[in-house]
Amino acid sequence: MDWRYLFASVPGSSHLRRGAHCDDASVVVEGHLANGSPVLIAAVADGAGTASRSSVASKLACRVLTAQISEAVSIIDDLAPLDGDRARSLVAHVVDQLNREADREGVAIREYATTLLAAAVGPKDVVFLQIGDGAMFVGEGDDYPWVFWPQHGEYANTTNFITDRDALNRLEVDHVRAEIKEVALMTDGLERLALNFRDQVTHDPFFAPPFGQLRQQAAGHCIWLEQGLEAWLKSDLVNGRTDDDKTLILASRV
C-alpha cells in the first residue's frame, strides 16, 4: 500500500445527551487496478436524524459502495470509466441494497435516508462522487481546496439523500487526471470548522496539523494516530462548535 490513512466517526454531543447512536459512518478500502496499481477508496455517510434506520443505512451505504468501486476498478487500468453513468449505476446499486434491507425489515425506504460521499484515488487520476452535505478536499501543499460545495437546501436542516426519488440527478461526479497526494472526507458535522461559508473557501488551518502528523507515519492504517483523532473529535474544543455526529477521513500518499 502506498497510502497512510486514518478515519473516525464519533457521535455528537446532542446525540449522546439523547442516548442516540452515531448516524455517521466511514470506510476505507485498499483496492487495485487491473495493472496492479493501488487505489485508495474512501467513503463517508451521514444518516438523517429523523430516519429510524439511519445508522444502519450510513454503514451499509459506505460498505456497499466501497466494495462496488473496489470491484469496478479491478478490471480497468485508469479511473476514467467510473465517470458519469457508471458512477450513477454504482450509487443506484447502493440504493437497491437499501431498498432490499427496507423490504426485509418491513419499513419505508425513507427510514434509510443517508448522504453519501466517496473518493477513489489512483496513481494518475481520481474520481469523486457526492449526494448531500459534507465535503471532500484535495491536499495541494498547504492548500486544501474543496471538491463539491456541500448540498444544502434553502434551510440549514435540509439536504439531499440517496434515498430521495431524484437522488441520481443530484449526484455530483468528477473525474480528474492528476496525481493526488492527499485527500480528506468529512460529514456535515465538521463543515463549519473546515469551511469558511462566507467566502466559500476552505479554512486551511483546520487540516495542516493532522496532515502534518499523518505524513510522519508509516504506510497503512494508522490506528495509533486514529485514537488521537477520535479524542480530538470528542473534545470540548470541537463540541463547542458543533453538536452533530462527526466523521473525518484523512489519507496521505507515502
Partner: peptide, 11 residues
C-alpha cells in the same frame, strides 16, 4: 430544538 436540528430533521 430547531436551532440544533440536522439535515433530515422535520421540526
Amino acid at each position: 430544538t430547531v436551532s440544533h436540528s440536522k439535515p433530515g430533521d422535520e421540526v
